[in-house]
Design a protein around this nucleic acid. Structure first.
Lengths: 230, 230
DNA sequence: CGGACGCTTCGGTCCGGGACGAAGCGTGCG
DNA sequence: CGCACGCTTCGTCCCGGACCGAAGCGTCCG
């Protein structure tokens, strides 16, 4: 039984270079050390040291492929902590039209670690419950099973994973829950594979909703109109 | 629509003195600046500057009573973020028998901002659902209404507050959910007022379960045996 | 009213951590 | 095999933030 060292983890997140790396890794993919150095805007040696500290602190894990070292968020609890911290972090003022567009894109659709977030994530969560695919206790109904199978999502596989199956994750841009857990990760993977969402760039966890994705989500009953997403 | 400055908030939490203050404030009470200086082990001037930064960063809020300045956690979202961060923070090794006792006490019963956490919190959450006081979608049943009224808890008042009513909050010591939200805050207040739990000290968010509390919780079906709390 | 007290602000000091460049190690490839 | 490349480790420098003591302000109380 232990007390925890909050300051240590806070300090890890509290460096701007490391925070930029963590933000990029919240896109859900593993990124190479060199890529993270570029994203953070520091040299390779500096990036190495930052990544070592994040790894030692348990926030990221590393997988080597030959000379390439791929880093990723260590697990869903880290993703959840970073999202919760984003709830209370101050907004970064928008200084350009380009940044404004990026912030809009983040708010509309992005990954929160390994699942869909933003207005699209919240709309999906709400529609799945309204349509009876998911109960308010976060169980998948037979209708949900069938519907998700039609999306190419294997609900049984998600359930078999040794982690939380389905739970609400409070969305920092919408201030309402989107779906998290292994089910949400499976759904998000499935929707990306179907081409409903496309990743914008390595630097960003913003996702772009395709025409096919818009049609599919609206068929479920997701409300993607501008007023509903505000 | 904004991006957030994660590093700024991380850095606030990442100072040991400030982390100690936040930890004490997670006890759910407002504490005076002088008390927080004592808890953090720094002088009054240093504490003032730390508190000013926490206030400016939105993590705490201040209420003046004459020459006394009482600081408290700014809201449930901050409490949730700190609890989520505790999930991923490294354990602080226990160095003495006294610390070991304190860590045990924290794990058994403590406040997580304004609601009961630890083994007791998780046992209460589970028993309320098992006993049919609460549904798995976190609605209070008529039986729950009556039972809680018997505990002196006003469910209607909790529902009328402009915040989340009832939701799971992943417990960092038990790794399972305890109850959070205005309902949980009301329950915790009620149980403290009934003398079921007693606050140990200003420095700590540990709660002590009284004999009356143990009897009352066991009557509901809370499993407080050592094996169930491990 | 005058002194005590709680708290905040400010200037000065010092230390820790982020940045860089150089060197070293391991993988990949012609 | 030799060179290029990706990454890590190490030493040095420098800046920012925590800390303290002093001074100032406002409240409390005899």
């Amino acid at each position: 039984m232990h007390d925890t060292d909050l300051a240590a983890t806070g300090a890890l997140i509290g460096d701007p270079s490391r925070a930029r790396m963590l933000d990029a890794l919240m896109g859900g993919r593993a990124l190479a050390a060199g890529e993270l150095a570029r994203i953070a805007g520091v040299g390779a040696s500096t990036a190495s040291e930052h990544l070592a500290r994040l790894r030692d602190g348990g926030l990221v894990e590393v997988v080597a492929h030959g000379r390439h070292r791929y880093y990723r968020i260590a697990g869903p609890d880290v993703g959840a902590a970073l999202e919760a911290l984003s709830q209370v972090a101050p907004p970064r003022p928008v200084r350009s039209l380009r940044q404004s567009g990026h912030a809009q894109a983040l708010g509309f659709a992005r990954t929160c670690y390994d699942h869909l977030a933003g207005a699209c994530g919240v709309a999906l969560h709400d529609a799945m419950i309204d349509r009876g695919w998911l109960t308010r206790a976060y169980d998948v109904t037979p209708a949900g099973h069938a519907g998700l199978a039609g999306w190419g999502v294997d609900v049984g596989a998600a359930r078999a994973r040794r982690r939380s199956f389905a739970r609400p994750c409070l969305d920092w841009t919408e201030r309402r829950p989107h779906l998290a857990g292994s089910l949400a990760a499976g759904i998000t993977d499935g929707l990306v594979e179907r081409g409903w969402f496309v990743r914008r760039s390595a630097d960003s966890r913003a996702l772009r909703l395709t025409d096919a994705g818009r049609a599919g989500m609206q068929a479920l009953g997701c409300d993607l109109s501008p007023s509903a997403t505000r």
